[in-house]
């Protein structure tokens, strides 16, 4: 239940984030036993680089407190969608926080919104969507892979998000989103290999007041097809964008300084001067990593106008963000 709201104390069954260093962050479950890969029930012991952690011992500890390990220490934190994204078990490719943030804002989701997502995948985006729609809203998420549907459903339940989400096993490209979602959605998110097959089905799912759609595609050919279909089905403000993030490491570096002044005087004098001066300087710098992800996916956003404005085919797609007065 540990994703819902803000929590102070770890309870049995909670998912807990174990933070060791900035690159060593894990998610463990505060329960005495766990099912291993072979399907047997075993003691829930998590091996960290700093020693083993008996996960059962976490129960009763405060979130945000320090815990000792045999060869060091770590911190236990309450999970949230951002920490979940970096620790979740990958069942598919996942969407990361820079894209997730943009999706939530551009889809104009707020508490009370009804959102459709397909596919569910590993549930990275779903957690952020649920946080944004609760407590009055709902997420309807679809995947055509039966096991993923089941795992995701269990996960949402365990995380305390069960009542805000409906997970369905369904191929939306073939079957659409179902009649029960007609005129229900404020926003639709598609992460599909063939989004242009699902886009026509989304039209009737939108509320009469219209809404926003987003399609995430890694390849530009998918984007081109999707944009044509979006425009054909009356979507407006069609805009494709990409967001990439660079994380900096703040470091002090020591650089040697060459003394070229000494060349202007005799060798003896220069020797004297050299002894007095230290020939290094310190600079504070924010250093990007040697290699950063250069591409995740293209985000294509569009607006479905309200019913009374759907007949007016107006080209609103020329949104120009940058100083184009």
């Amino acid at each position: 239940m540990s994703f819902e709201g803000y929590k102070d104390v770890i309870e049995e069954g909670d998912s807990v984030i174990l933070y060791l260093t900035i690159t060593q962050v894990y998610c463990v479950k505060a329960q005495p036993k766990i099912v291993n890969k072979k399907g047997n029930l075993v003691d829930n012991v998590f091996q960290t680089p700093f020693g083993a952690l008996k996960c059962f011992d976490l129960i009763g500890k405060y979130y945000g407190s320090k815990i000792s390990l045999s060869k060091g220490w770590g911190y236990v934190m309450q999970p949230n969608p951002e920490l979940w994204t970096i620790t979740l078990p990958h069942r598919t490719q996942i969407i990361y926080t820079p894209d997730i943030s943009m999706i939530v804002l551009q889809l104009e989701i707020s508490p009370g919104s009804v959102v459709i997502e397909s596919g569910t995948g590993s549930g990275s985006l779903s957690h952020a969507l649920i946080r944004a729609v609760k407590p009055h809203g709902h997420l309807h998420t679809f995947d055509f892979h039966e096991d993923r549907v089941k795992t995701a459903r269990d996960e949402f339940q365990e995380h305390g998000f069960g009542k805000y989400v409906t997970v369905k096993h369904h191929d939306v490209c073939v079957n659409g989103f179902g009649d029960d979602l007609d005129n229900k959605a404020d926003a639709v998110f598609l992460d599909l290999p063939h989004p242009w097959l699902a886009i026509p089905h989304t039209v009737k799912s939108f509320k009469d007041t219209g809404g926003r759609i987003c399609s995430f595609s890694p390849c530009i050919e998918q984007v081109q097809k999707s944009c044509l279909i979006l425009s054909k089905y009356g979507f407006q403000e069609i805009q494709t964008t990409e967001v990439l993030q660079t994380q900096y490491s703040v470091q002090q570096r020591t650089l040697p300084v060459l003394n070229l002044e000494c060349l202007k005087v005799s060798k003896e004098e220069a020797e004297l001067e050299k002894q007095i001066k230290r020939d290094v300087t310190k600079v504070m710098s924010a250093i990007p990593p040697a290699s950063v992800p250069g591409h995740t996916g293209y985000l294509t956003f569009a607006t479905m106008p309200p019913v009374w404005a759907r007949n007016v085919q107006l080209n609103l797609s020329d949104i120009d963000d940058c100083n184009n007065e």
């Binding site: 933070y19 900035i22 081109q224 044509l228 964008t241 660079t246 994380q247 120009d320 100083n323």
Partner: peptide, 26 residues
């Protein structure tokens, strides 16, 4: 978990046979 980051964002012109990043960025 102190992180310092910045973002690169760019928009695309998507048209048949004429898809490319937009000329202006910020």
């Amino acid at each position: 978990s102190i992180r310092l980051c910045n973002n690169f964002m760019r928009n695309y012109q998507v048209l048949p046979e004429r898809t490319h990043p937009e000329v202006n960025m910020c």
